[in-house]
């Protein structure tokens, strides 16, 4: 069970080029919430995730994590966050298991084998990542969700490259996570299981 966490977005203005992606956006989330960011391609969904995690800076506004300004206390957020961006963040010279062990050096062989089995990559442990397709690489990235104990998940298009069974497994993992007090913010074009009580935020072009 995760300790209580909260994320507050206050008066956020995001600009890209000459265009505002959002104006004066504010919302609050806490442990147990799932928040889905909706929007067409180019609406700024990934940008919003990157601003929340501190990779990008907003034009104006503040992100508070557990009441602390993230732009000042970035380390507090980074200790607690698992961010899966648009890229796989997979090293091609590593095997599949080595990639996971790079992120989770203390994970047991059994835990890694289980995580890979959930994303349909059983038997690929020793396969060099360079020999895998883009979809399979994406699934290695997603396997990290079954190994992490971080309470805050920021997921950029997590359902991409997953088959029906994979989507179902991921939804189950997300349900377990929020029931343990975790918080998830994700972008996806896919409908999510209604039982997850997803909060939605819309970004428009």
């Amino acid at each position: 069970m995760h300790s209580s966490i909260s994320l507050n977005i206050s008066n956020l203005w995001i600009e890209r080029g000459e265009r505002y992606l959002c104006k004066d956006m504010s919302f609050s989330l806490s442990g147990g919430d799932i928040c889905k960011i909706n929007g067409e391609n180019g609406a700024g969904k990934s940008t919003l995730l990157k601003i929340i995690v501190g990779i990008l800076s907003p034009l104006e506004g503040t992100v508070y994590y557990n009441g602390e300004d993230v732009s000042i206390h970035r380390d507090l957020l980074h200790q607690d966050v698992l961010y899966l961006g648009h890229n796989s963040a997979i090293k091609s010279v590593f095997s599949v298991a080595e990639n996971l062990r790079w992120y989770f050096p203390n994970a047991s062989d059994e835990a890694i084998a289980y995580a890979l089995s959930v994303v349909s990559l059983s038997g690929y442990e020793e396969t060099p990542s360079s020999q895998l397709s883009a979809g399979q690489k994406r699934r290695i990235t997603l396997a990290r969700l079954w190994l992490t104990d971080k309470p805050l998940w920021l997921l950029d298009e997590p359902f991409t490259a997953l088959d029906v069974q994979g989507v179902s497994s991921l939804e189950k993992r997300m349900r377990d996570h929020i029931s343990n007090g975790g918080l998830i913010i994700l972008t996806t074009h896919q409908d999510i299981d209604a039982s997850l009580n997803v909060k939605e935020i819309n970004l428009t072009l």
């Binding site: 990779i55 980074h78 961006g85 648009h86 890229n87 796989s88 963040a89 997979i90 090293k91």
Partner: peptide, 11 residues
């Protein structure tokens, strides 16, 4: 490959 982003958020 996106690993630099992971360095930034690794803590």
């Amino acid at each position: 490959d996106g690993c630099l982003e992971q360095w930034l958020v690794s803590g």
